[in-house]
């Protein structure tokens, strides 16, 4: 059976892509606008990229965001994976239902409430708001996503593999490290990516929990846009999109290469 591209298919494909990517495309195009005015095309230029690197406020915010993202995603991945293991592997322990509900709470809790409650906590504990508090808040926010991703993988993971490892002389911890982890690694990495991107674009929780000197990129962009869209913002967004796109492409190439390598018997 040949599946030719019918007119209907082509139209729906184009409409779908346009709906998803047209705004992004516009943003990319405008970032190369030579004119300072956002709505007037003044010719192609990369000047905003140049000036971007001299805009210390934006660069500082980007650096903060990156650090917060890397650290919180890593923490969330470790904690989220452990939570997933506890939920899938330890049967019915005391407080399991409570623990399960609590670890999923951030998924359904409005971010405003979460941000506010974290703010109250930090104030009550007299913790100075800054890089540390944003990082902790993002860890809390993203951990649940990691737990969901890893838990669904663990649920389908053949438990007898862990038992076989123990049978062959591994302590339970070692069995997890040398057998379970390598096999659920794609899910763990996917959880990390998810946590990292969530942290990158979070505005609400960061606004509540950050302090002086810890302004994240979304916060900076948001506050600048309120004063009018600057072409520099377009440029920084284009760079972000580029970075995410490169990440996604690398990821899919790597997984494709891995499945191909898995299928062919090595020489």
């Amino acid at each position: 059976m040949k599946r030719g591209a019918s007119v209907f298919n082509l139209v729906s494909l184009t409409a779908g892509f346009a709906f998803l990517y047209l705004p992004i495309l516009l943003l990319v195009i405008w970032s190369f606008n030579a004119s300072r005015l956002v709505t007037v095309w003044g010719g192609f230029s990369t000047r905003w990229y140049g000036s971007l690197f001299h805009n210390e406020q934006l660069m500082g915010a980007a650096w903060v965001t990156l650090r917060v993202g890397l650290v919180s995603a890593t923490l969330a991945t470790v904690l989220g994976t452990l939570a997933a293991v506890a939920l899938t592997r330890h049967g019915r322990f005391l407080g399991r239902t409570l623990f399960s509900g609590m670890s999923y709470a951030p998924l359904v809790m409005p971010e405003v409430i979460m941000g506010l409650s974290l703010l109250l906590l930090f104030v009550a504990l007299k913790v100075d708001r800054g890089l540390l508090t944003v990082t902790l808040a993002h860890t809390t926010l993203t951990m649940a996503y990691v737990t969901v991703v890893v838990q669904s993988r663990l649920a389908t993971f053949d438990r007898s593999l862990e038992e076989a490892a123990q049978d062959l002389g591994c302590t339970p911890a070692r069995a997890f490290w040398s057998v379970t982890l390598p096999n659920i690694l794609p899910a763990v990495l996917a959880g990390w990516m998810l946590a990292f991107t969530l942290s990158l674009d979070d505005l609400v929780v960061a606004s509540f929990t950050s302090g002086p000197g810890a302004t994240t990129l979304p916060m900076r962009i948001y506050s600048q846009v309120r004063l009018g869209v600057s072409p520099e913002i377009n440029a920084v967004c284009t760079l972000l999109i580029g970075a995410v796109a490169v990440g996604v492409i690398c990821w899919s190439l790597a997984s494709k290469w891995r499945t191909a390598a898995g299928r062919q018997p090595p020489a």
């Binding site: 007898s160 593999l161 038992e163 076989a164 123990q166 049978d167 062959l168 591994c170 302590t171």
Partner: peptide, 16 residues
């Protein structure tokens, strides 16, 4: 289990 001098062949084989 890891200190018992027995080994098991699992029904699903449980190959890594």
């Amino acid at each position: 289990p890891h200190r018992r001098p027995v080994n098991m062949m699992f029904q699903s084989y449980a190959l890594f």
